[in-house]
Nucleic acid binder design. Structure first.
Lengths: 393, 393
DNA sequence: CTGTTAGCGCATTCAT
DNA sequence: ATGAATGCGCTAACAG
């Protein structure tokens, strides 16, 4: 967008004869300036070149309705000759759609979110929109800034809220004239649509699975309990334990970066007089840290301790023992959220071009199902090694 | 950006008395309209509210130089009261910086690229810019579209070219008035800056490492050889083998999605009369597929077959045996590329606000070093299990 | 069917 | 120190 000579050059162009059937000389000059990339062709350039008005060109760009075949051809040719493409920024300023959506997630390096981002990207692309991604690192402050920046330059927002309890943000969003769809975590007391998974239910199921293996002292190891997702999973665990008449064993102390913290917590538990005989991890990274710990200290899985984690991860199936997990439908989450947003965007668009303001609609809630991927760490059998015979002759 | 009632409301406001020391009635009306989110406050609103001109408000926003303390305070108050924030889109249209950069990568779900994206995001944020991400899936067509879309609405581009040999794109970029930095892969015959890693050299080193373990029949397993990165790594492998006087053993047939293909290829090799005693994988996903195959068929690593892969991956250290890899400095790649872009952007900005067009500068080449992470799969010893004593008392 | 014109919100000369 | 006026590129009333 930086183009220092633009102003001067453009003045020159504007001084050119603009009558239909422009002089060859002027035409060439115009052509050259643009070809030399000194600036982009504008609508006006095309109009002049084709010897028509700007409106006509505009019409040709957006649908070509009500334009005589002859002019149409001329304009098309002009567009081609000049390599004209409408300036999206100018369109935005006119209050049209920006053809851009915002995606606000905690972290791009996390495969969970980056996979969702990939899906969202695809959907957006299919709707002819681009995606601006911002990262919050779960900090409400950064989220606030992102929302405000994006609200002015996007058609809609896809948001994994840094906190589910954020009245300030809720108010801001009710304010904003753009639709928002939350995913992974809800945003309480707001009427934004949400795409969530059955955290409670499937955590409960996972815990029950462990219980069905005869495990009694199941340690529930948490991520930060402040996240609604983790909170729900914890609730599921507690429900299952209570239902089974077992006392809960929970440690949701802060597991920040690095295996160090997890190891410390685990050591404490394994030094106790009644060490756990199973562990249920509420979060991807905790599962991995935990596995690392067990492996490093030679604690046999699943014989001594069974393990189930929430969230699948690449290679979970390739570890020995392979790790049983609750898998979230990652792709589906992203796809669904994006589709909901574009659906709403479509409605708004229709409303705008028909009557007035679109009817404010209460947000929907879509709850997706997770899947318990049974592998070996829970106590179920390992997939045996395949026959070697076929290879070694 | 969709706001159907805007036009009407704004007309009303514009008709309000605009004299300094605006009437309380008008002031309240203005205030209410904006507070009711019927529209965003504009520069003009602020000016009217504060009883000053738009220029003054503009000055206050950008630096506040040459404004009397009294007016300054008044304007600041007005901005606060009205919750005014400048519309970024309008600024863009004025030919200012868009405060947006474009990131074009093959895939967001790939942890290599998503980690890079995360870093880029951070850097951009620190420069007050947002990032629009588009995904090419290594298709030149999609890349072409992305570049063209982004060129008009961003200050600069960060690009992992779908193909290193793309004259059309090269020409288009020389055209575009925005700076481009390529990473991971170069773009031949273009003068864009590049951030690459020492693929050749470190692939050679990795191969040598395998050779130093006495391996003789080292199979080089490839990704798509069309990528420059893979090509370079292959060259490194070949150089090492030749230097060691060993015949190369290469299979870079297409390894598309799924372990199926890799398994097929590997089966062929292991059924041969002289099966490989080591494998060097040129690409992350191939390494994993390969490991999976070896594990599934019970081929002992590193005893029967040693394994080294290019690109580190999460859990490589936790597999048993752990996997030796060449690790690319992922974060550094992203950070460096982004910083180079913003440096260039700064130069251009300076040039624009000083004289004229910034001097076109030849692109730099930064080549980052990779690191051979020695773990167990190459034949080096496994890290032993830690003492249990400290845990079990 | 087609052209003229008036803004969208801001930054920016050029006056005062 | 301050303000009026102009235009960035485009769309959409509103005429012909």
């Amino acid at each position: 967008m930086i183009c220092s000579r633009r102003t001067q050059v453009s003045r020159k162009v504007r001084a050119l004869p603009g009558a239909p059937g422009m002089l060859e000389a002027g035409r060439n000059r115009l052509f050259l300036e643009i070809m030399r990339q000194e600036r982009h062709a504008t609508l006006l350039d095309v109009a002049r070149y084709a010897g028509v008005g700007t409106t006509t060109v505009s019409r040709v760009i957006n649908g070509s309705v009500g334009v005589s075949p002859k002019t149409l051809a001329a304009v098309r040719q002009a567009i081609k000759d000049l390599g004209f493409a409408p300036n999206p920024v100018a369109r935005m300023l006119k209050g049209e759609q920006t053809k851009t959506i915002g995606l606000i997630i905690p972290n791009l390096a996390d495969s969970y979110f980056s996979s969702i981002a990939e899906e969202i990207q695809k959907v957006a692309c299919s709707f002819g929109s681009m995606v601006i991604v911002t990262v919050t690192h779960n900090e409400v402050e950064r989220e606030w800034v992102s929302v405000n920046e994006l609200a002015r330059r996007t058609d809609g927002l896809l948001l994994a809220p840094a906190s589910s309890m954020n009245p300030k943000l809720v108010e801001r969003l009710s304010w904003a004239p753009i639709p928002v769809v939350c995913f992974d975590r809800p945003l309480f007391h707001s009427n934004t649509s949400r795409v969530l998974t059955a955290n409670y239910q499937d955590a409960k199921a996972a815990t029950k699975h462990l219980l069905s293996h005869g495990r009694e002292r199941i340690l529930c190891l948490g991520g930060e309990a402040s996240f609604h997702t983790v909170h729900e999973r914890l609730r599921g665990y507690l429900a299952a334990m209570e239902q089974a008449g077992r006392g809960p064993l929970v440690d949701v102390s802060e597991h920040k970066r690095g295996a160090g913290e997890a190891a410390k917590v685990l050591k404490k538990h394994f030094r106790g007089k009644e060490p756990p005989d199973a562990i249920f991890c509420l979060k991807n990274s905790v599962t991995i840290d935990c596995y690392d710990f067990l492996q490093r200290f030679g604690i046999a899985v699943p014989m001594e301790v069974a393990l189930v984690g929430f969230d699948d991860f690449r290679l979970a199936a390739m570890l020995r023992p392979s790790v049983t997990v609750v898998r979230q439908p990652v792709e589906e989450i992203g796809r669904t959220a994006a589709e909901m947003l574009f659906k709403r965007l479509g409605e708004i668009n229709d409303a705008v071009r028909a009557g007035e303001r679109a009817a404010p609609r209460a947000g929907e809630l879509v709850r997706l199902k997770n899947e318990l991927i049974v592998r070996a760490s829970c106590g179920c059998e390992e997939v045996p090694v395949q026959r070697l015979g076929s290879l070694r002759r």
